[in-house]
Design a protein around this nucleic acid. Structure first.
Lengths: 135, 135
DNA sequence: GATATAATTAATAAAAATTATTATTTAGGA
DNA sequence: TCCTAAATAATAATTTTTATTAATTATATC
């Protein structure tokens, strides 16, 4: 069992089921994955896993902040383990999504926005290096 | 007929149908809207409008860059008329989405990312002023 | 370690969202 | 005005997501 994942579930007050461990491990392995990718990956470990279980757990894992949704134009949402704030490079050709550390990329000029910021997400769409080379 | 919308369709090489004019006008009126909101608004003008027509046109309007999708965590995608680059303030309570000019909000420190940037999208989630007051 | 109980799961049905099909209508050029 | 390809309405089909339910299981308490 993945100790890291097990502890994470306990810390967030969720029961440690094999299904949850499998789902989180699948996401950790892939970095980012949509529902179908998670389901496929999870089934290699746990063939009897139900798709409905994946949906239900994704929901509760997001509610408990263990997972984060990444909504993407023209694709199904992907999910990632919660980690320190970062941004994404999203390839418009192959759809690949890659984390980037945005800490030094931008400098916030602050400002009064009359809005309580809880979360800042920067999505950068373009063509990744892989795609540039392959064509 | 909305001259602006009609010209926009012509410029993008799309036939000017009443349905398209209605859809674009609905989005322009609302600023941002998801499929259902567009459909509902459009039906007030054109009651025989089919939902499938809305879906089909949203697709071709995006392909021709007349519209832009805004994928949002925990909501259905919204659509907006293409306009100059900007960012969004997204309220996690009421779901409202508001444009902000991000031109002066951040300063890009450039960098070599090995990625051809086509589009940068910054989504800021939080609680809007309205919601802060109402509770 | 055994047991009680509430939560979780698999299987499935139901609902919601999106896309495909097709006959008819229409926009726009000849 | 007429022709033709494109667009539309209506609907079916498909895909995606959520709800239901009976059976199973994690975990707290003894």
């Amino acid at each position: 069992m993945q100790m890291k994942v097990v502890n994470s579930l306990k810390e967030h007050g969720l029961k440690v089921t094999p299904q949850r461990v499998t789902i989180l491990s699948a996401i950790e392995k892939k970095g980012h994955a949509n529902i179908d990718e998670i389901y496929q990956e999870a089934k290699t470990t746990n063939p009897t896993m139900s798709l409905a279980t994946v949906y239900k757990n994704i929901t509760s894992l997001i509610e408990t902040k263990l997972l984060k949704e990444v909504a993407i134009n023209n694709q199904k949402s992907k999910y990632e383990l919660s980690k320190k704030p970062h941004s994404h490079l999203i390839c418009k050709k192959c759809g690949n999504l890659e984390d980037i550390d945005s800490h030094n990329l931008f400098t916030l000029n602050s400002d009064k926005l009359d809005f309580d910021i809880e979360e800042v997400e920067l999505n950068i769409y373009g063509i990744c290096n892989q795609c540039k080379k392959s064509n």
